[in-house]
């Protein structure tokens, strides 16, 4: 029994169909609890008022946006090295989820910034980095959709993902160098002094877990769809060969 068994599409589909309902419930409950707790049962911030609560959407979305790219990077590496189709399809499936999360983080960030800084947008390093990440997602998705042969597309997008990751990190440092910024530090870090108050952090953790499960659910679901699309394509090809 090894993890690579799930690289078999059939095995992947049957297993994911079994666990998906559970994950749906988990994601739904965690998101609901976290958001309701965060929105209605936390105090207003003494400086920011109620607008601080947008954090409960903004921070988890940003967290997923980055980790979705990281997951795509790992999945691309697995495809390049071990050539499991499911892995390539999972990377493909994660990209639209990642780009939506990035967009949510950008939009909620703009709303929040409008309240606190009085402007919709500043070219702050964090915001700029997310905008650049958004562009990387767009390029990745565009390349997938431009190439007809699925294996060729998987190969090319994997290499783009690897190269893009290096350049994304490079852009992050370049942007930091370019503008020191206005954004507050990381909302959660291991260094206790820097963290947001405990009253906020607990519901925030719940929200992040909820968003994490939501991401997992969406990616599993979309990967299943991609596998079926791939299979339909293969079946149609068989028909043509039989004819």
């Amino acid at each position: 029994m090894s993890i690579w068994e799930y690289a078999n599409p059939k095995k992947f589909l049957t297993t994911s169909e079994r666990v998906l309902p559970v994950l749906w419930v988990l994601a739904g409950v965690l998101c609901a609890v976290g958001l309701i707790w965060g929105f209605f049962f936390t105090p207003d911030d003494y400086r920011q008022g109620a607008s601080v609560k947008i954090m409960f959407v903004h921070v988890p979305a940003a967290f997923i946006a980055i980790n979705a790219w990281f997951m795509m990077l790992v999945a691309s590496l697995i495809w390049v090295i071990r050539r499991h189709h499911v892995s390539a399809l999972a990377a493909k499936a994660a990209a639209p989820v990642g780009v939506v999360m990035t967009l949510i983080a950008l939009i909620t960030g703009a709303l929040w910034g409008h309240q606190i800084w009085g402007t919709w947008w500043v070219w702050d390093p964090r915001l700029t980095s997310f905008l650049v990440l958004f562009l990387f997602y767009l390029g990745y998705i565009a390349l997938w959709s431009a190439i007809e042969d699925p294996d060729t597309a998987a190969d090319l997008t994997s290499i783009l993902c690897l190269v893009g990751s290096v350049f994304a990190v490079l852009s992050r440092y370049a942007v930091l160098f370019w503008n020191q910024g206005l954004h507050q530090g990381a909302s959660l870090s291991l260094d206790k002094e820097e963290n947001v108050a405990d009253a906020f952090s607990n519901p925030l953790y719940v929200c992040m877990a909820g968003f994490g499960f939501l991401f997992l659910v969406l990616v599993l679901y979309r990967t299943g769809t991609e596998i079926r699309a791939r299979r339909i394509r293969a079946l149609m090809m068989r028909e043509r060969m039989d004819a």
Binding site: A7, N8, P9, H84, H85, P150, R231, A234, D242
Partner: peptide, 13 residues
């Protein structure tokens, strides 16, 4: 020859 439908797993062929 076309592979068996039963073996129609990993490679989608």
């Amino acid at each position: 020859k076309l592979p068996d439908l039963e073996e129609f797993d990993e490679a989608f062929l």
